[in-house]
Design a protein around this nucleic acid. Sequence first.
DNA 1: CGCTGGATTTAGAATTATTCCAAATCTTGA
DNA 2: TCAAGATTTGGAATAATTCTAAATCCAGCG
Lengths: 152, 152
Amino acid sequence: MRSASRKQDQEPLTQRLTDGGFRFTPQREHVYTVLTERRDHPTAEEVFIRAKKGMPEISLATVYNCLDALVKCGLVKQVAVQRGAARFCPNMEEHGHFYCDVCGSVFDMELPAGQGAPVTMPKGFTVDHYEIAAHGFCPDCGARKKNVETIS
Amino acid sequence: MRSASRKQDQEPLTQRLTDGGFRFTPQREHVYTVLTERRDHPTAEEVFIRAKKGMPEISLATVYNCLDALVKCGLVKQVAVQRGAARFCPNMEEHGHFYCDVCGSVFDMELPAGQGAPVTMPKGFTVDHYEIAAHGFCPDCGARKKNVETIS
DNA sequence: CGCTGGATTTAGAATTATTCCAAATCTTGA
DNA sequence: TCAAGATTTGGAATAATTCTAAATCCAGCG
């Protein structure tokens, strides 16, 4: 469950897609490339915009389809957000997310190594993976908030 | 940050709303009651349906408004889900959530006591709270999956 | 006790995010 | 090379949430 990610990163995209029961297509490759080029957390819409740069004919429906395939193959993570569009994360290393509750940005968060499973589940539940998240203010929004308070 | 929840539970709804800058209204009280009557994780739509039982004239927009107010006052939690409608959780004790990736149900999950903060954030980030979640199969879906595999 | 301003409710319209659809195109395996 | 099935595309449809404007309610004030 922990980290086969080193090995996974090396395996060619084609193989991972095939293993997941998907075909390799130029669109899927392109979406994957666009996503891994930057270590941020774009929405499907943002991926679409970036993808159009190198592949102008790609459609939004295809971007959704590709993202879905990539997530199912474990090549990309989908991060759950409270409101608004889903975001995608190309970082497959074990890590958590920090959510700024003011501006909505998402940051990758290192987890202390070797923490082990954070919980033991009752009988019958099968855990596939854990998610650890923190909510609060990012540096920018924390600073802005302090200013407002000082002024008022 | 940990658990003032015992004290909070006792404080009357009116007070908590006022403290949060909201007025006490029959609708907000009703939505809160409906939500705390059951320890599950309904969507806004489901809360709306339950709320109409005792208050037939309430509107969906009001339910959204009430939920928003309750969340902002710390009387209810909003849980982030990967897809579909947001869910609300009346359990304000410290706990995690288990998400069944097959049927989408959400279960409360006890956390081992006194774990402490799961991470230390880089300078500039202010953490308000943590969220610990597990994904996998719930007992029902785990069983169903096994059957399918056996059959095929 | 009646007014006034601002908060709240309501119903419905509008918006946002995502999924569905059908036709055209592409891929894979025989 | 062909056929079957997967994929892409653009647009329509759906789902979830937010916005809007008018009506109502409430607290504080004179």
